[in-house]
Design a protein around this nucleic acid. Structure first.
Lengths: 245, 245
DNA sequence: CGACGTGTTGATCTCTCTCAATTAGAGTGG
DNA sequence: CCACTCTAATTGAGAGAGATCAACACGTCG
């Protein structure tokens, strides 16, 4: 795939993205250094890396993770096309987490002070960056709720529902009620704080109950209602008036 | 306590805060609407609340949380003086989490579009907002690693070390090797995805081993080294070259 | 003084982990 | 075309960390 000009960025076509003025696009384009492709499983940023640039995920999936010294790994969140990579590590400081490609990926590489340039020169865009950062945090919040308080079954159901929604918003082949789903069970386990074995058993249990199906790298929700209910995604209907105990 | 002018904000004196120009201070001051005090345990933002303003925590502690419909609660992170409250909920949208006072608190209330005004008028400050948001996310990341992959003992040790560090940076009475620590065991349990009972037992075990002491709302680390080692805060020494398996 | 919130401790119970083995598919080299 | 290797998925069995249930202690407060 050849270099994509920002003004022709395929991501801009997605309904999830806002319009940008020609000036803003020009600024973004001036900050973009180059574009690189990496194969699945490649390291994009290592844990503790110091000079990581700012990336944008143009295509493919990736994930952020942290590990303990004995190898236990926790996946913090999954990154889909359009997500930023590397906002967290402030300049010249070690990255507190690693980022790894989940599929083959295409990345836009920005110069390290691009964030600052954006803030200085394009308030609307920098506002979006703040918003996106806050939004990514709320994804982590959701996962923390899962890992801290949901049972294995509930965690899996919750992840399936959430990932389905996210994947659907950017999936062009979103026909047949299925979306691309490149995660292995190991990824799911590491994302939910479960062991691989228990993840497998739980996944199979839900599948046998007819709630979902994963096949050939695609995820099909066969009973989205039950999955959402199991995951308590909406807190049993409405949000607001809910007993705290 | 009477209204504090931003230019005289006690927080600015802390070494953790950067300088702001007179212009920037004036802008902040123009966006600040008022100041309110709330007692311990008061709700600052309810889960699902729609019109929450933007706050800044002037004094006291608070925490962000999420609950499931049956009452299970997960504390997402603790908020200390200087932290923002309410950046996550984008305008006119329901807050994805609740915020509750942990101690008596003083809050600065900003108009809802203050964030936008800051981005538009003070790039240095809006850059700080982005940075702070990213930093808060990295705190949640740490907790997610704990809850997902650390044992109860390790989680508690990790929390004690982290909270000690945070509290120390803003604690004026930080003498005698102890810091103010207003959390109950229930808060610790809800922050670490543990049951109250198991939290108590683990806490006592570490205390009996002489690693820490909590007394009269103050936390004393009696063996910070062992606690850090137990928590694997630094990945056994250095960060960078560490086997991933 | 009784009610309540917080902290403690002992006794089960169970969900999830760890250990072990097997199957299936993809890729590689002879 | 087939043996060989590797990764991902699967399943069973036993073990264990942490949950749940039940009491009790202590201090504060109306």
């Amino acid at each position: 795939m050849k270099i994509v000009a920002c003004r022709e960025c395929p991501l801009r076509a997605l309904p999830a993205f806002v319009d940008a003025s020609p000036d803003e696009l020009a600024l973004i384009e001036s900050l973009k250094q180059r574009q690189i492709g990496l194969p699945a499983d490649a390291a994009i940023i290592d844990e503790g890396q110091e000079d990581a640039p700012l990336y944008t995920l143009l295509s493919g999936w990736a994930f952020r993770y942290k590990t303990l010294s004995d190898g236990r790994r926790q996946i913090l969140n999954f990154l889909l096309p359009g997500d930023f990579i590397g906002v967290q590590q402030k300049m010249a400081d070690a990255s507190p987490h690693g980022v790894q490609a989940l599929t083959d990926v295409l990345l836009c590489v920005f110069q390290r002070d691009a964030l600052w340039a954006l803030h200085r020169g394009a308030p609307r865009l920098s506002f979006s960056v703040t918003w996106l950062t806050a939004h990514e945090e709320s994804l982590v919040d959701d996962t923390l709720l899962s890992v801290g308080r949901r049972s294995a079954e509930e965690r899996i159901a919750s992840l399936l529902v959430m990932m389905y929604k996210r994947a659907a918003t950017i999936d062009e082949h979103h026909g047949a009620n299925g979306v691309a789903f490149p995660l292995t069970q190991q990824h799911i386990a590491d994302g939910l704080g479960l062991s691989l074995v228990h993840t497998n058993k739980t996944l199979r249990k839900l599948e046998r109950r007819g709630l979902h199906r994963i096949e050939n790298g695609r995820l099909y929700l066969r009973d989205a209602k039950s999955l959402q209910q199991l995951a308590d995604v909406y807190g049993q209907g409405d949000l607001a008036p809910r007993p705290l105990i």
